[in-house]
């Protein structure tokens, strides 16, 4: 089993994802340069957070044209596991692998803090180690995490159980106060229709080691590892 962490120019959580997968979870992990045209036999692709191409035009808008994204799209269409975190989620939206778009946070400010996430669907490669409705404490760090999608797609996302995480309070209530960025229906993470591509704004790699005091993020990586192992 091998993980590949894509490095776009301006990615800055690539080292963090690599560190957690390799050093904290002991997985075979490789960096994949954005100009490469091979996924190097990886079983799971991580599109990390950061500011690909500075996000000067629109978050993720340039990165989706990197040569490696052709490979990632092909891999995803064949059912390969892809997780996009923060900027990685934005790249997935721009590339059309996931529906919807990101707007600026309703505060029009970057926000970095811990939030609570309600796990809405545990029958996925990414959440099978969680309990239904489990509240995860995970940090966010973004300026554009205000998820938007048209009504019909939103209905479909709900109907097909594709909304995996919603921002909630510490008791698991999904309330407007618990929404840190104005995201539609408090959406923090969604999957594609077949369920093999996850995009999420919060950063599980930032809370996956006991030394840092928070470990809920590990559940997500362990879910993927467990799922790949069973396959």
């Amino acid at each position: 089993m091998k993980f590949g962490v894509v490095v776009f120019p301006g990615s800055n959580c690539d080292h963090d994802c690599y560190h957690v997968l390799k050093d904290a979870l002991g997985q075979d992990t490789a960096y994949i340069w954005h100009k490469d045209r091979s996924l190097d036999g990886c079983d799971c692709i991580v599109l990390p957070g950061g500011f690909s191409y500075g996000d000067y035009l629109r978050t993720g808008a340039i990165a989706r044209f990197s040569p490696i994204m052709n490979e990632v799209e092909g891999f995803a269409k064949k059912g390969g596991i892809v997780i996009g975190i923060c900027n990685g989620f934005q790249v997935l939206l721009e590339s059309g692998l996931l529906p919807g778009a990101m707007r600026h946070n309703d505060s029009v400010k970057f926000v970095c803090k811990f939030v609570n996430l309600k796990t809405e669907n545990i029958d996925t490669p990414f959440t099978n180690r969680c309990n239904k409705g489990q509240v995860l404490r995970i940090p966010i760090a973004h300026g554009e995490g205000n998820y938007y999608v048209d009504d019909n797609t939103l209905k479909a996302l709900n109907k097909e159980n594709r909304i995996i995480f919603r921002y909630c309070d510490k008791n698991g209530e999904v309330t407007p106060d618990a929404n840190p960025n104005g995201s539609l229906e408090n959406i923090a993470g969604i999957v594609n229709k077949p369920g093999n591509v996850l995009g999420m704004m919060p950063h599980p790699e930032r809370c996956s080691e006991p030394v840092l005091g928070f470990v809920d993020g590990k559940l997500i990586f362990e879910s993927i590892i467990g799922w790949l192992r069973k396959r």
Binding site: D16, H19, G49, V111, C112, K113, A141, R206, G213
Partner: peptide
């Protein structure tokens, strides 16, 4: 000062304890 430091990414590089 949360209004200030929450605008800063103070966790990237996963070292902040």
């Amino acid at each position: 000062k949360a209004w200030v430091y929450e605008q800063y990414d103070h966790m990237v590089q996963v070292n902040t304890a």
